[in-house]
Amino acid sequence: MSASVEQRPPGVGSGPDEVIRTEQLTKVYPGDIRAVDGLDLSVQRGEIFGLLGPNGAGKTTTAGMLTTRVIPTGGRAFVGGVDVVAHPTAAKQVIGVVPQTNTLDRALTVWENLYFHGRFFGMGAKTSKTEATRLLEQFRLADRAEAPVLALSGGMAQRLMVARAIMHQPAILFLDEPTAGLDPQSRIALWDILGELHAAGQTILLTTHYMEEADELCNRLAIIDRGKLLALDTPAALKQSVGIDAMVTVTAAGDLDQLANVLRDEIPNATTVDHSDGVVRMGVRQIQGVLPKVVEAAERHGFSVSDLSSTEPTLETVFINLTGKDLRE
């Protein structure tokens, strides 16, 4: 199922289990701003699929096009087999969306937000009532049922939006930067909810710029930057693709440019060496025995190493490798 992007020409992967498909999907905003540029994606039923990239990479625009709110300027997009541009009303029946901002209806109470959402999606009054109450219980919001939505904390509002999005049992759940701005506890609570939904067979597409989140949650990831797909695979395969065993981080005082050159020359296993934020980062192929050599080489050239660590490659490493820049930039 996982194949690198080069091996996945458009068309491969289609079948009864394909629930999202884009073909050369493109969005150019006025002023020739190419937000999304020829994107080919295929998401399978039951997957948690992540769009990972920095702010402005085109993740939200892609999610917007798949959820009918952004009109593509080129290419095609299908959800549940429905062409979202040609048949938006049909497409809207099979999707649930948790947008980036709090779009809860402020004129209604917490319970009413769910109740009317159910009615919008064709539930009868009775079913919608029971479902709204059941979901509030399930998402631990029952004691807030009659509260105005403005009285909810960020985490609670987010839980309510997830409850609302899954209420009509959508085939695909979209979450746009679901944990941005949430406190760590609420973030973990949301991860738990998404885990349970995934276990129940829910297909989920989420956009995020948090590597840990993408790594923790997603079965497959598309790394995108400047509207283009850079890599598509499982998190594990992406990390392997970097071709290093470890990322060594060296903290030392002095001219880091010079230290980077020293390490480049003296550590034969080093693949990439660069520095930023006051540390030198070095990708290493075989880590055994490297750390003592780093300290020895640095001190021989007059650098005093104050900290030294080695970690397995992360998605951050993958991103730096692909773009030459930090995900947080």
Partner: peptide, 16 residues
């Protein structure tokens, strides 16, 4: 937390 109901199967494009 009680179990989450599994999502509906997707109706055919024609049906939608």
């Amino acid at each position: 937390m009680t179990t989450i109901t599994s999502p509906a199967t997707i109706p055919s494009v024609k049906e939608l």
